[in-house]
Design a protein around this nucleic acid. Sequence first.
DNA 1: TAAGGTTATGAAAACGATTAAGTAAAAGGT
DNA 2: ACCTTTTACTTAATCGTTTTCATAACCTTA
Lengths: 337, 337
Amino acid sequence: MVSMKDIAAACEVSVATVSKALNNQGDIGEDTKEKIKSTAKRLGYHPNFSARALKTNRTYNLGVLYKEGSGSGLTHDYFSQVLESFKNTAENSGYDITFLSNSKIRKDSMSYLEHTIYRRMDGVMVAVADYKDAEVIALLQSEVPVVTIDYLFNGRISIMSDNITGMQELLSYIYSQGHREIAYICGEESLVTTNRVSTYYRFMEEHGIRVRGEFLQKGKYRDSHAAGQITSKLLDLEQPPTCILYADDFSAIGGMNVIRDRGLRMPEDISVAGYDNILIASQLEPRLTTYQQDTVAIGCMAAEKLVSLIENPMVTPITQYTVGGELVRGRSVACIK
Amino acid sequence: MVSMKDIAAACEVSVATVSKALNNQGDIGEDTKEKIKSTAKRLGYHPNFSARALKTNRTYNLGVLYKEGSGSGLTHDYFSQVLESFKNTAENSGYDITFLSNSKIRKDSMSYLEHTIYRRMDGVMVAVADYKDAEVIALLQSEVPVVTIDYLFNGRISIMSDNITGMQELLSYIYSQGHREIAYICGEESLVTTNRVSTYYRFMEEHGIRVRGEFLQKGKYRDSHAAGQITSKLLDLEQPPTCILYADDFSAIGGMNVIRDRGLRMPEDISVAGYDNILIASQLEPRLTTYQQDTVAIGCMAAEKLVSLIENPMVTPITQYTVGGELVRGRSVACIK
DNA sequence: TAAGGTTATGAAAACGATTAAGTAAAAGGT
DNA sequence: ACCTTTTACTTAATCGTTTTCATAACCTTA
């Protein structure tokens, strides 16, 4: 592997000169600089990242902590889209990304924070379901620059998908179509769920609708089977809802199947709506009404803010950013006015 | 950041002794070793990865090169599952993974190979659609340890999903249900496509069925719209197929919608089958008949072979590994015997 | 008891870069 | 012609490890 020493020897200059020339520091004569650069290319020189990192204490490496209840890992639609966008933005700024491995798996059992320190990551993006995990908290309380996604932690930048507006827009639309008996099958406890559920209650209250206890059901995210079962229960009610709102599109699909199996028509007999606008949502029959979170903007903003925090810690405000989405009017909500 | 020097000072020994003690080298007295280890813990010592990498020339970092035609990035079902499994296995062996960024995006425009060298990655897993890309070829021809997924390159270990058996099992099943007029809408050119198409031809030949030209259609992977259009064409034929086989489940969904829109029933009027068994395949109506590739085994094996190649280059055979999958009998193929 | 063998530890070089400080030569100013 | 400044470089220290070789102390054994 050719190093600066080799270039220095070839050009008969010192290593320091080579370093400065390759880093475009002003201190070097034009001709020498050119000569050094061309021999570097000719010899096939590539800077040694480890050496540079050792000296500068900067790795240009960002950690990604992702863990989610159901263990779907990278196959999670919402997150994998956010991650893809985060990765692209980070790479544009010269940062690579590395996963913070789940300590439970790892042999020598490093914690997230230890892993971060070991690799000397410049910062970490955190997107987890379980913010009560002690290891996650340790990381959030550390000195490491962090941005969180869909979670607020004191003193940390956070990027939030606007679940309040999202839920509001969905409900407004459903309401505008004449629905008053709207059930909501929510997901596991989390900030996202809290925001959505409280918005549901507030919306109902603001529109003078009494929420019946059975209409707010606790389900699981991305579990079509569970959603199907709850849908069954809802349909069995003496006064079933006219519209069921699901925690996400996967759940909606589970519900839709149960509805279809019962010989009910959508949306004539019952309306449904999801959340996320996953790829096949547009291919469902009927086309699903849902809310598309702006995963690209979320990932992009997370990367931008994290990089800014790393490179200009003093001028980077520690705040919460909210990213709106877009209502997708499918054909799964009937107009019953 | 506490370093070995600090521990050495605290224990009144030399840095060399600390290094040996922490790495469990035999050369150290039991009591000193214990003392060093406990002070290391007490002071909150974490080894500096960059320094170690600089000295040992090992980063315990694996590159992942992934690029796919449609630009779906991490949101690609098949790949994200393989990657998840690869990542878990790699982490178990003490390796982290880093994405090889797409050079087109990167500002300073490093090639894949340059990126690999810059980060001094110990090895790379390659999963791309376009194996004609000059940068990909350069990487494959380099000195870097590599495993490829679903592609054969001279002198490289490759992990292949068994598309031949997969296609055969699907076709056998469809055939066993009485179908003879089987159309196949394949994906873009690639080794995977080649394997599947040739298997299709061979199967037909072996069963004495003449393949009609219109029955082999060229589509795109994961493009439900395109698949829908081609489905339309097939249905317009004077003698339409009794079963349409799609390149993947996404495409199948596109086709199913067109079929439904035409008022045809599945599988009574026409049968369909997909490939991949994506998460919602089981939720479709009718439940999709498809073939599930063993993404977990593929990712796991890729990581194992790559690590083995890195750690024991001499005893690691350079061969091709084939990973079988499983036929998923849904309800989308009718028995027409 | 001297020669040889263990065992535990230390000194120092090396990995490949960055960077502060120093220096010689050329250029500029009066 | 002399002093100052600028330019273009070099020297040398440093980052935190690993590793080879040296060394001192102690233990065998003939």
